[in-house]
Design a protein around this nucleic acid. Structure first.
Length: 391
RNA sequence: GGUGGGGUGGCCGAGUGGCUAAUGGCAGCAGACUGUAAAUCUGCCGGGCUUCGCCCUACGAAGGUUCGAAUCCUUCCCCCACCA
């Protein structure tokens, strides 16, 4: 290691070298591991809350940490628009700026190629966005995405990829997949020029729902390696769940077994259970906080809409089995009241609960893997979840 | 007591002869949300039913004009403003 930021990752007492991933035990395709990053160690499998603008919406960093999060996301495109990476770099980088002391990962802006499809045009060089903030033209290329992410200073930078919709034809998915590979070459080159050993770059597998394309994407990606971790992108973007499971299964056997696997943008609780069983180590998803703000909570008995009239006088917590700060203290009736009255505390409390719910789920899954009981745990978990009142 | 204005679905409020079971908004109810343009969006919202449709009851009350009335006329009740 070199440089002032290059201290060994001793935050959690880890003796691993930065970016080292050690698998402690496997259970079928599933793995329990430890990932060492410059800002600390991450036990896997785990869920990474999304903090697009350098904040997990509505939550104080301490709350996010107390909920069990050990790594969170930031977003290249949105932080580039405001406050801008030069500002963040001048203020000491994303970690110091936000005060989040633990590992961070920045998404590359690739997802905005998909989610802001109406505001951008793609060329081989890169993507031209019309800013939704002021209408200005903003161009993102594989190179500029790397430059921005290096300026932001997260532990993990993501490759700039071309995401296509889940319904995309073979031709379209192939185009996005091949472009993602070509861009990966450019990402890697630029990242190597910039980054010291305080940041690693992870590639993203694309290919839509087409097994042959997924395989080619993986081969092309590995040929451009080595990598300290590999992401699977372009899932849960409109394709049926069984299709996502099939893609994961087809990749599980071909992915390097000793590298962390990150399933991007997933997901819902049942997706985490299914994903972990298929070898996924890392997840991220906005649903925990977005749905939380919208009053939709995950509980061990299924989904609950806290705005519902049936909670008007309910004394029980959101989820009696939950150990989050919300469930420890507040009744469903109070949470419902906060939503009806449009008090911001309600948005925060349910967001926090959802974050903790996913993290507790991954913690339980990890324990089950270590205990060699993942199958049983998964079955029971899904049965209880789908058997709930709102399932 | 006089003059003027007004009474519309839970509330506010459009609507002056057929296109009106009645615009909007609010409240209420339900649903959606997966690498965040989202504290957002969508649907329902007089009653009933066999609910892509049918049947009731409806615009203060009663009566009338008209093929047809929330809309026009008469009487009554109530509210508001001003004047006595």
């Amino acid at each position: 290691m070199k440089g002032v930021n290059g201290q060994r990752s001793t935050v959690n007492g880890s003796l691993l070298a930065p970016f080292e991933f050690r698998i402690e035990r496997t259970a079928g395709a599933a793995r329990a591991g430890r990932l060492a990053l410059p800002h600390g160690e991450v036990l896997t499998p785990t869920f990474m809350p999304v903090g697009t603008y350098g904040t997990v919406r509505g939550l104080h960093p301490e709350e996010v940490e107390q909920a069990g999060a050990r790594i969170i996301l930031g977003n290249t495109y949105h932080l580039h628009l405001r406050p801008g990476e030069s500002t963040i770099r001048a203020l000491g980088g994303l970690h110091r700026f936000t005060t989040w002391p633990r590992p961070m990962l920045t998404d590359s802006g690739g997802f905005q190629v998909f989610s802001l499809a109406g505001l951008r045009s793609i060329s081989e060089e890169g993507v031209e966005f019309t800013s939704h903030i002021d209408g200005s033209t903003r161009t993102l290329t594989p190179e500029s995405s790397m430059e921005i992410q290096w300026a932001l200073g997260a532990d993990v930078a993501m490759a700039f990829d071309h995401v296509v919709a889940g319904q995309a034809s073979h031709d379209l998915a192939e185009e996005g997949m091949e472009r993602t590979l070509r861009w990966l070459t450019r990402c890697r080159r630029r990242h190597e020029e910039l980054a010291e050993e305080t940041q690693t770059l992870w590639p993203i597998i694309q290919g839509g729902i087409h097994d042959d394309l997924r395989r080619r994407s993986l081969e092309g990606t590995l040929a451009r390696g080595p990598w300290t971790g590999i992401a699977i992108g372009g899932l849960s973007v409109g394709e049926p769940k069984p299709v996502m499971h099939r893609v994961l299964e087809s990749l599980a056997g071909a992915l390097p077994p000793d590298r962390p696997r990150y399933l991007m943008g997933v997901g819902f609780p049942e997706d985490l259970v299914e994903g972990i069983a298929r070898g996924v180590d890392l997840f991220d998803c906005v649903a925990a906080t977005r749905n939380g703000r919208h009053g939709s909570a995950w509980t061990s008995g299924g989904r609950v809409n806290i705005r519902g009239a049936d909670h008007r006088t309910a004394l029980e917590p959101l989820d009696p089995a939950c150990d989050c700060a919300t469930c420890a203290r507040f009744s469903r009736s109070y949470l419902r009241h906060l939503f009806v009255a449009e008090e911001m505390l309600g948005l925060r409390l349910v967001s926090l609960h959802n974050i903790r719910f996913l993290l507790r789920l991954t913690e339980e899954a990890r324990r089950a893997i270590l205990a060699g009981e993942l199958d049983r745990w998964s079955r029971e978990w899904l049965r209880r979840y789908h058997g709930g009142a709102d399932a």
